[in-house]
Structure formats: C-alpha cells, structure tokens
Design a protein around this nucleic acid. Sequence first.
DNA 1: CTGAAAGCGCTTACAG
DNA 2: CTGAAAGCGCTTACAG
Lengths: 346, 346
Amino acid sequence: MPKRITMKDIAQELGVSVTTISKAINNHPDISPARRRQIQSLLAERNYIPNYMAKNLRSARTKFISLIVSDNTNPYFAKVIKGVETVLSRNGYYTLIFNNNEDPEKEFTLIRELLSINIAGVLICPAGGSDKGISLLRENNIPYVLITRYIERDCDNYVLADDEKAGYLGTKHLIEKHGEHVAFFNHLPGISTTRDRLLGYQRALKEHGIPFREEYVLSNICNQEDGCNAARTMYGLMGGKHFSILCYSDFVATGAALYLQENGLAIPKDVAVMGIDGVEMFSYFYPGLSSIHLPKFELGAKSAEVLVDIINRRAQEEEEYPELPADPLEDVHIIFEPTLQESGTT
Amino acid sequence: MPKRITMKDIAQELGVSVTTISKAINNHPDISPARRRQIQSLLAERNYIPNYMAKNLRSARTKFISLIVSDNTNPYFAKVIKGVETVLSRNGYYTLIFNNNEDPEKEFTLIRELLSINIAGVLICPAGGSDKGISLLRENNIPYVLITRYIERDCDNYVLADDEKAGYLGTKHLIEKHGEHVAFFNHLPGISTTRDRLLGYQRALKEHGIPFREEYVLSNICNQEDGCNAARTMYGLMGGKHFSILCYSDFVATGAALYLQENGLAIPKDVAVMGIDGVEMFSYFYPGLSSIHLPKFELGAKSAEVLVDIINRRAQEEEEYPELPADPLEDVHIIFEPTLQESGTT
DNA sequence: CTGAAAGCGCTTACAG
DNA sequence: CTGAAAGCGCTTACAG
C-alpha cells in the first residue's frame, strides 16, 4: 500500500504547521482567506483524503449509524431501508445494515459489538421476546429510534404507524363488504404491531356487534409459506361459510391468495383477502389485493431525520454546557396514519 | 457522556502496563496464562469495550465493507444484499449499504467519500455509463468485487451469473412453447447484463432459424411501470399475432403481466410472459410466471467470501513481505449457472 | 492570524 | 514474560 497523503505532508510542503492545515480544512475562522485558499488548492491538487478514523478518535464522534431490521428482503423493510439510506446519505451519515432475523439474542450480541465502533446512533425495529439489546443502548447512552415497533408507549424515541387503526380499518372494510366471518392471520406475539393490529381487529368486530372468535385468529404467520398454510387451515375450519381474511402483511396475503386460487377459489368473490402494508410491488398483480397503506419510505426517512436531529442536539448541548452530564431530551413519538387502499377488484 | 473504561484504566487498577493489557486482549503468546486470565476477567467485570477507531488508526485496517447496488428495494438486490450481510457479519465485517440509483456520478462521489473511512473493501454492482468510480478504487488499491455485472471480461474480480445463457434459455423456452414471435424487454444499455442477455436472445433465435427483428426488442425497461407500458406498446405492435415476452427481470415481467391481464388476455394462453431472476416472492402469484432462476443469495454470499479472502491474503502478504509494494493477486472470476424454472402454468 | 504541544486509545517494535 | 516509548493522523486548548 503506497502511503496516503496526510496533513503533515501538506504542511511540510507549504512550510506551515499542521494546525494551520487543520484550520484551513475545517474552515476555522482563525485563518486568513489567502492562506486558506492556498492550502485548499494544494490539498485538491495532491488529492488529499482525510483520515476519518483519526478524526473520529480525537473527536469521539462518528458518522456511522446502524440500521437493524428483521429481514431486508421483506418488501416492507426494503422500503423502510431505502428511506433511511436516502436521508442518512444526504446528511453525511453511513448506514450499517443488519438483519436480526427476529432473534433477540442475535440483536443483543450485535448491539454489544456495535458499541466498539463508537456508533453515532441506532435505528432499530426491535425483535420481540427480550429488550436486552435496547437496554444496552440505554445504559450506554447511545441515541436510538425505534422504527415500526415500540416497547412501551411512553418510552424511547419511535416512529410508527398507527397499527391499531390499521387493524381496525382492514377489519371494518372486510366486514362491511364480505360479512361477519373475518379471519385474521397475525404475526409473532410479543411485538407491538401484532398486539395493536389485533386490538384494532377486535374493535371493528365489537363496533359491528360481532362476537370475537378466538379460532379465527392464527398467530406466527410471518411469510408467504405461512400464509399459504394458514389459508388451508382456515378454509377447512370455515367449512363452506363465506369468509374473508385480513393478513398481518401483504407478504402473508400473497401466500394466502396463492392457496385459494390454486384451489379454484376466486378472490374476492369466494374469499376476500386483504393485506396490511400497501406494498406497491404487489399492486402489480391481478387480481390486486386490497391493503392498508402504511408510508414505508416515510417511516424510514422520518426515523432517520429524528435520529440525526437528536445527535445534533446532543452535540450542541455538550458544546454549550460541557459540565452537565446527561441531557434530558424529551422523547420523540411520531405516529403515521394508515389509509385504506382498495384495489379495483377486492 | 460518562467516559468509557479504557485499557489504561484496567492497567492502573492491576498495576501493569498497557502493553500487557493489549497482549492479553489480543491473545499474544508473550504472556503468562495466569496474567491473561486475571486480565480477561477484570476486563469482563468492568465491561470493557474496545475502541475500534483507535485500534484501526494504529493498524490502518478496518472492518467496514461498502455494498453498492442500484436499488435495495428491487427484490433481486434484496436477496443479494442478504447474502452479503450474512457472510460479512459471520466474518466480523460491517456492511455499509448504498444505493447509486444507476447514476455513475453518484457512484463516483460516494466512492470518493468512502476513501476517507479506510474502507476494507467494496462490493459493487456498477452503474453503467462511466467507470470513474471503479477507477478510483483501482487507483487507491482498494480491494473490490463486482457483483452481477462486469466491466471487461478479463478485468477485476467479479461474481456473476451467465447472462448470455439466461437470455438464451428463456428465449429458447418461449420459442419452443409459444412460437417464433418472442419480444424482449431489456434493461439499460451500457451494462453487461443487458448486453449479454440480448446476445443470448439472439443466439436462441438464430439456432431456431428465426430472423432477429429489432422492433421486438424494447430497451430501458427497468421496473413494473415500464413493463406495463412496454406490454401495451408490444401488444399494439404485434397486431393480433400470437406472441410471447421475455423480460429482463421478474420485476418487469409482473408489470407486463398486469397490463395483459387487465386487458383480458390470459397468461400464458394468449400471451406467455417470462422473467429472469427467479424471485421466489413472485412465485406466490397465480398464474405463476416462468423464469430463469439465478442464485441471488449465493451471488451475494460468494462475492462477500471472495472479497474477504482477498483482504486476508493481502494482509498476509504484507506481513510476510512488507518490502514488496503492489501484490499481483490473480483476479477472481466466478460465474453461476442459470436454470430454467417453469411454473405450473406458463 | 499562526504554531508548539498534548492527547484521543490503541498497537508494535524493541529492550530487558 | 513484562513494559517504556513511539507513533497512527488528526483536533484542540493555549500561548504568542
């Protein structure tokens, strides 16, 4: 590896101090415009590339932000990731991506490791089952924003969709168009979205005077295969009744739809299927699925904005009151509204 | 921010030198087992977290690897990304993700910036139109592996699928099942995959004694909307002939399929539609599309393995022969075989 | 406006 | 087996 040009090289070539070079680079006021121009132009000519690691070691601040989701291939998360990456790049931050595969242990190990690299902040859709990872962030005073899922209603910074309302809107739509027998294919327990969407489902039933039947709700339905199997189970269970299905996600809904169509059932004539998430990609299928639209890109983008803002405010406070230890910044809670997205056919 | 525990703190507490602590941490042979155990246990007790930035500054080697794709929401890339992330995490590397949006200028700016953070290596699916970004990597002697697309056949390290064969297999299948009128919806020009898939398309035509008709090939068809529009155009052009469509990707194919189905055309009875990529997610739609399967996860995983291997070999060489400057490592070229993936219906 | 000096937290020859 | 010292490339009080 040929050695790279450093500030020291430039300083020697110009017969000035390294301090002066540093000031020129960082647009410090304590420097004459002429000097600055002279230095800047040599820097450019020599193709100087700053050493970010050295800079960071001194200032103890990095531009690395970790983004932890369960699975980047899930089209829902893919959009969230894109929102995050777009905003972070624009703000000069780097997006380190990780999949926790819904495993809280993996999440914990990961976060533990992240502490070594002086991460500036973390954006995370936390796995259910344990908050060990999040606790580690709290203990180490790392700025973080929960995306999509929260842990406690009044705790942490988070950017979510109103999942109760999403479940409510979907169920209401199905009841009104397809009658009282609405099955619900739900996600993993122990996660706020699972809980809240179920609450919304129940509220819609209640509002329409329909009793809640536990057997209509299947849990742990996470992907297309699960959706396909769940549809088989539910179809058997319904025994010929006209029914409809609300799925936790569009991803699951496509699996359910496959089973039904392959078995000669028309959607929505025989069985209506509805998803949640509003994955645009899936709207290109015929017959289209209705869904509850959630602003995925915006969820990612907004959470990145919130995190960057928190990081900046902290840095500013530390500059202004270096003596004060912890900063009691108020938690940020942002909740997006879901909307009904009817396809032409369902 | 409360100061974090450093090696110095531990050294003082134990009355030994920082050097000794460092050796204990790095399992250096020059240290007695008793000492090592004593130090390790205090480290654990005090919850010591190494400062990665400092470590890196000294050793000039990071664990950051950049992954640049055009769009992480494209289900093809989503799988590639997952393959990369899985392998890199397992090897202790961090995946920095970026979208270049097929813009070579953005790619260049990005790579320029990456040089500052002492990136260990780059995995990139290069945008077409300009190789400025890649040149920067070459000039700065940064290890990199091209994923999915190559620039020159004998240059660089790359991990690809055999795109000529993919185009050939798809076209051959369509000709044999649906006759001579095979339209091809192709991607952006100036990219190896676009070029090679077209070559395969032409080879299959030739082999079957069918003339190449330029008007059957539409270019710049990149997403579902493009696919939908292209299907409209081609349907008009064919004027009632029975024809079939090979699409550059499954993503595009779903767009084409939507147009046809919405206009009352049955797939594949009236018009057969075929994709390339074999996106599993799409196989959950009915009627399923046939496709050419490419091993997406494996492409990502393998390219990450190749890169890690290159980085390790370089490090080793530098250790063994620190006097030698450049290392003439042989380029690695890996090409995966595509396979025909027939759906039950198409 | 400029610069000498200390220091960020670690690793690595080198001497003992 | 242990440690003093130099140094990675930068920033930041501080003095002039």
